[in-house]
Nucleic acid binder design. Sequence first.
DNA 1: CTGAAAGCGCTTACAG
DNA 2: CTGAAAGCGCTTACAG
Lengths: 336, 336
Amino acid sequence: MTTIDNVAKRAGVSIKTVSRVINQEPYVAEETRARVLKAMAEMGYVANVSARRLASGRAGAIGFVYHNPSWQYISSVLRGVLEKARESGYETVIHPCNVHNAKSCDEVLDLVRQRSVDGFIFTPPSDVAAHVLTQLQKAGVPFVRITPQERTSSRAYVTADDHRGAFEMTRYLLNLGHRRIGFIVGDPSQIASQQRLEGYQEALLLCGQRDDAALQYQGDFSYASGLRGGRALLQGPMPPTAIFASNDDMAAGVLTVAHEFGLDVPGQLSIAGFDNIDLAWQVYPALTTVAQPIHDLAVAATEILIGMLRGEVTEPEQRTLPTTLIIRASTGPCPV
Amino acid sequence: MTTIDNVAKRAGVSIKTVSRVINQEPYVAEETRARVLKAMAEMGYVANVSARRLASGRAGAIGFVYHNPSWQYISSVLRGVLEKARESGYETVIHPCNVHNAKSCDEVLDLVRQRSVDGFIFTPPSDVAAHVLTQLQKAGVPFVRITPQERTSSRAYVTADDHRGAFEMTRYLLNLGHRRIGFIVGDPSQIASQQRLEGYQEALLLCGQRDDAALQYQGDFSYASGLRGGRALLQGPMPPTAIFASNDDMAAGVLTVAHEFGLDVPGQLSIAGFDNIDLAWQVYPALTTVAQPIHDLAVAATEILIGMLRGEVTEPEQRTLPTTLIIRASTGPCPV
DNA sequence: CTGAAAGCGCTTACAG
DNA sequence: CTGAAAGCGCTTACAG
């Protein structure tokens, strides 16, 4: 293992000078820098990360905290975070956290105490561990939350425009002539559920439709709740001609019910989802949905966090990214 | 930030004694240990990981290397690795690696040079970077591969019994009365593709069926290739009554083709997959498939690696885990 | 532009 | 059973 000492000796300089070259500090003569660089290359020198961290007091890593059943979602976010972090020279430490367990939450704080990370990114619903966030804030440890529950404080977060996404999807269905549009609500404990519901309701109102509770079903974002919701809505006295499930898993459940009932989709029933996960295009017929900019959200969150770590960002930034309507085969004109 | 010095002072012992308690070394008087433990708790002491690593020369971390399009798969593996590693006191460093890029491969070696990890787990097809493996072996850095391409050397790996899984599925379809069973082959560069094909062929042979090339289609494990394969097989002169796609993505593609063609599944066509990813039960009808023990494979690989790191395992272990036949709604008796 | 010294917070190897 | 010393490989703060 070659160390900074070996390189210094070979280049005929002090270790401080080698350190300067490694860290791209100014005030090194070009000729000296070249000599050091040459020595490093020849010896295959790579700095010892632990030594660096210990001496500098910085971890050079960010913590990625999640508490989640949907790995489909988590892994999409993770990908964005890993990419951005790597390119900025940060490592990513992945940390599962059970928000209902105090001990598990404390482990997040331990990551700071043991100097493993400099800051955090929280994915929902891990951001609901209020105690942890308070502690981090008190300790001056920066963090950014992705689509958090709590948005009233002045803490940094990034989120998709759930309200507008649902609004646009509903308007699209209305434009297809649908008037009885069923809606399956997501997990009530997530703020996005409420926002998607409101977007749907606002679009109906704007078109002079009244908000009919009989057309709404309370789900929880799971495939199984989509199954239940689909059955409930389609077995009613005045079944909808379109069902907008507020995520793709539930929409896939509704689609299965449609198949079971022998309904042609979209001939007799249009079905729409939300999120645009892979599942959306792998079912038959492929689902019309609202694409959440998950990757962009992850990149934005990481960008903001690293800006905070470098002291470039001081104000807690709150960014809302637009969604995109993705029209596929599961929606069509209202049957006459 | 409380350090080992603070704790030592408070407990009235030397730092070496505190170190002994932290590392659960023997030869500490019970009374002393209790005093130190108390001091640690009172001060909220957590050891500085970097200092520990630097002093001990051990990273206490394993590298998780992947090069993959399928995050569904990667994240399942990752989950198992994270769990097992955490419980054994190891961190997991996630490292993407483009096997076709020499520079990217070198970064894997850098993780060792910078003392960030003690060993590696490779997921397919990242294990094909032969140069990296050779270098690691030369440097005495342990690694375990999950379902690797190369299995002739005496390097450690874990794998599922692909051959047997495909054999059992085919036998199951034969028992349902099917005689014309189509097969969609996976990515030819992956050894699992070949093994699944052989399992299929062996079952046919055992039932006195001859191996008909017209019933095979060369896919690549993607949904799109399932679409193509389904169309090719079903449009032939003597279409199969069952199609066994060698992974779930391709099976979902075949299912979509069946819907397009207006075929009843499983009334007119049985469809089976392999892997048992979430998609398999979220399509309609839910897919009969072969469950790969992905989680168990990940746990086993991590277990073996940690055994090697601790010097408990010396011989390179090679473990094959059984698969499970999962019967759902997409398969049924051969139509008469 | 360059360097000598001190120190980051632990563990190792050795002594008692 | 306990501890004093040295050292892991860097960076910081300071001096020149």
